[in-house]
Amino acid sequence: MSSAPGTPLSRRALLLGAGTVGAAAVLSSIAGCNYFGSDDPPTPTVDLNPSALDPINGLIATTRLHLLRLDAAIAADQADAAKLQPLRDDRQQHLDALTAEYARSNPGDPNATAAATGAPVSGAVALPGTPQAIVSAVRGDTATAQVQFTDAISTASRYRAALYGSIAASLASHRAVLA
């Protein structure tokens, strides 16, 4: 549909040309908005501390929290303190083992040394008001932790899988004692 030089453009040719340019403009504007339309490379967010991505951190955090809640439960429920204290001691050993494993596998992390020293867990947590509800809350924490450690076994290294398995089994026995 091209015209010879010097030949006046017909109205149809003008409309067709305008449509083509318009379509190209629309496509170009769409491409400009497209996520992949830019030639500039995306700027990734790089975590320069790979140890922060270690999945064991979630297990350590859960254990720390549950230790706090066990401490609060023992303080608030004297009637069940004798039953809860051994469970609390087990959880402390779990925490110590987890932080030691974190320090072992992340030797370059300055926080690992401090964590592995077994720094005391401190903080305030809220618990229900009645002894029955407190034991129920502890039982719920135990079940939650057992699920987490069970799930973590699937993708962990062999050494960690055995460690997590022992902890999950220990938590299963805690639930039986609390039942």
């Binding site: 469970l87 087990d90 779990h94 083992a97 398995g165 022992s166 902890i167 026995s173 004692v177």
Partner: peptide, 19 residues
Amino acid sequence: AMWKQIAGINPPTIAFPGQ
């Protein structure tokens, strides 16, 4: 843990069963 409870052993649980 159950057998330890029956035998009157305290604590009845251990931190790392099988270890």
